[in-house]
Design a protein around this nucleic acid. Structure first.
Lengths: 174, 174
DNA sequence: GAAATATGTCAACATCATTGACGTAATTTT
DNA sequence: AAAATTACGTCAATGATGTTGACATATTTC
């Protein structure tokens, strides 16, 4: 197994003084792959807890955002998750039938179904969040808590900006 | 839409002097959600390019790792991706039929199928990597390149450690 | 020669996503 | 008040990706 790992580097050698228009800068494979592995494990652990309830990742996202924004409407949830009505309907039905989520008609606009977690739902959401928090907490501790803002900034910069009104993370003050 | 965003904070107020065994530390919702949104967009852009070839995310992963480790065996790829033979077989078949990947029998062990990208495959892999590199590059620039090692460290810490011999990212120097 | 290994393949199934159409209740517009 | 729009639910069909378990074949190792 002769490592051809560095072959790409040989393609664009740093010929000093060569004015070739911007040498194509090697892809940052390290961060690309770290993101892949990190995210996989980050969601993998919660996945195993969800399995016990017969739920999947989609259910996780739904109860997470309902937990974060109690009284959220279906339309708002669709905006955040960027999935279709049909995709949401399925998992929402599971969650409501399993008594993890409940709906209340909107007070002002009675067409709306405001979404809330039941105690059971909140317990699950908290359990899942605790797992992910634990993992993040360890990682933040490893780099030193003073660098946490940099992580947040970095991740925020990875997000598409041209989306209607930042999704749900920052805009608590809007 | 009265923001109930901070309601969780009210659950565990910092009662100074209260010796309650380790107040349950609020989940770091900000980083949890940033990871979700960041990863979604990070893979979403490549997804759109892959669509034009009739491929999906699974194809992306496969050509990525073959590109990174030319001559990789099927078993090694399965170890990295942590999927089943059947899942890999499907996408690998697509990629081989589409002339993006080619197999060669191992020289020492002729049972093995060593995997290589064709020129076409390499072009696609490079295009996808360029997209992700661009995104990461912008984000690194935003926080200042001197902080990149911290990002790498943070992400590495998110990864499960109890896995057989670190996956493929760091150990190039081992 | 027998056993283990690397790979391929088949059938069946689950989850999560999609599109497009249609129905109903409630609100808003004209 | 009728008409249009909105919020939501639902049905049917489909696709991508993952799973398990069984079995076949070629090759290597003991």
């Amino acid at each position: 197994m002769k490592s051809t790992l560095l072959s790409a580097a040989a393609v664009a050698p740093a010929l000093p003084g060569d004015a070739r228009a911007l040498p194509p800068a090697l892809p940052d494979f390290e961060l690309i792959e770290l993101l892949f592995f990190a995210y996989r494990d980050f969601v993998g652990e919660p996945d195993r807890l969800l399995e016990r309830h017969g739920f999947g990742r989609a259910h996780h996202r739904v109860i997470h955002f309902i937990n974060r924004h109690p009284g959220l409407t279906v339309a708002e949830l669709l905006d955040i998750l960027e999935i279709t009505k049909q995709s949401l309907a399925r998992v929402l039905k599971d969650l409501i039938h399993g008594d993890f989520v409940e709906q209340k008609a909107g007070a002002e606009d009675r067409r709306q179904r405001l979404l809330f977690l039941t105690d059971k739902g909140r317990a699950l959401a908290d359990g899942l969040a605790a797992m992910q928090h634990q993992r993040i907490s360890r990682a933040v501790a490893a780099i030193g808590p003073e660098h946490r803002p940099m992580i947040a900034r970095f991740l925020a910069e990875l997000i598409d900006k041209e989306r209607g009104a930042a999704p749900a993370t920052a805009p608590s003050a809007s």
